[in-house]
Design a protein around this nucleic acid. Sequence first.
DNA 1: CAGTGTGAAACTTTTCACAGCT
DNA 2: AGCTGTGAAAAGTTTCACACTG
Lengths: 260, 260
Amino acid sequence: MATGRTHRPATRSRGIPEATVARLPLYLRALTALSERSVPTVSSEELAAAAGVNSAKLRKDFSYLGSYGTRGVGYDVEYLVYQISRELGLTQDWPVVIVGIGNLGAALANYGGFASRGFRVAALIDADPAMAGKPVAGIPVQHTDELEAIIRDNGVSIGVIATPAGAAQQVCDRLVAAGVTSILNFAPTVLSVPDGVDVRKVDLSIELQILAFHEQRKAGEEAAEVAAQAAAGAPAAAAAREKSATDQGPDGDVPAVMPA
Amino acid sequence: MATGRTHRPATRSRGIPEATVARLPLYLRALTALSERSVPTVSSEELAAAAGVNSAKLRKDFSYLGSYGTRGVGYDVEYLVYQISRELGLTQDWPVVIVGIGNLGAALANYGGFASRGFRVAALIDADPAMAGKPVAGIPVQHTDELEAIIRDNGVSIGVIATPAGAAQQVCDRLVAAGVTSILNFAPTVLSVPDGVDVRKVDLSIELQILAFHEQRKAGEEAAEVAAQAAAGAPAAAAAREKSATDQGPDGDVPAVMPA
DNA sequence: CAGTGTGAAACTTTTCACAGCT
DNA sequence: AGCTGTGAAAAGTTTCACACTG
């Protein structure tokens, strides 16, 4: 909602909130499942449940895309799939390179959901000469020396870094220099990139640490609860948790993209 | 947050904002690196740069933990490492089970940063009988039949699901029934869990789709930019991006935990 | 005087609740 | 009658800017 909405009320304008963007893939997945089961329409309530969010949030999110529902009825599944795909830029397909073909890189290469929606693994790249030529997930691994050529020849703009932490920044620099402008980083490092390049980070140990924090909290609360229960009368059962909601928050963080 | 903060101004009370919690692991990692280089103190500016956030945010975050800095000087690295570790519950170590030992599960089992900070892989579990006994990352894989016993015998409260999507909910149910209260889910599914169980989700294709959205946006802006540049005089270079910041947002999303 | 700690302002995201369409 | 679309309120997060302290 950055630039005013003053006029142009019809054609949904730009400026979809980042939090909404982060949820669109979730909706898309739920819708795709419905589509496969040939469900023709769905209400915000049902779709929200399938996506793990609440319906008010979902309706608000969709309102940023336009008015694609029918009052009293719900949303047309196929139509919404198309609209969200388009909004996410998945009507074209994006060639992606994966750099670092260890266990993780191989797992990513084998990941089916990859190809299924808008992405194509254009190349697998590894620094180990012994890997060169070896096929992983049916794609021959190429040596890092080829990186620049691969990026240019395939018009790759999205790169996935699955290397050890030590190599990540260097790989990142080369990717960016060769023209990549979006990076998904699995290495546990903060990457620095020039303006205009987006980096998203996936980090196992950070996720675990966040869980540990809450886990620890629960242990503490349990003790408090027992005490309270002992002191007071009876009703202490489900009274502890702070947030409830049917939500399944993404980002956990507000992960947000970071144009760096 | 929820319960008022009315009194108790002194001792840092409970209720650290979720967004702050999500960044603590980032700070911890940066601090650990400094510690290894034997750097004794660090300013909010330096540490923020290392963690990829801005210094105001970092100071605000630390203010929720207490006053651990020294005005005019900065923060004592060792002391902060300890305080953050304690806050995150990493002074104890958490036994973790990984269910689903495919490429991804193996990658996770081999992930070093795992053991390094507060977590211990208590067991690897897979449904394939052929895997049973086979060691991965030095740990023998056990069959799913043993799941409940493993959880109970090891006092596991954190589980990692790295199975195919189809098996995830079922595995989740068993983990929860056996006593697990925190789950890190790598399968592309929305898990439903009872109240009091936290789920965090890591999803490759969602991340890629978010990148695709921004990538598409860039392409559009580029065109607009060129047009504007042609029409106007000259200054259009770095004027495009909407957010700037040195930030490297986690969550990308607001991933947030979801007490479900 | 360099640099923390923090109120207050600005912005973003979520939730509420209901008018309005089909 | 039912369900969407959305203003408006509430909650959460980030940024600003400066008083205060070692």
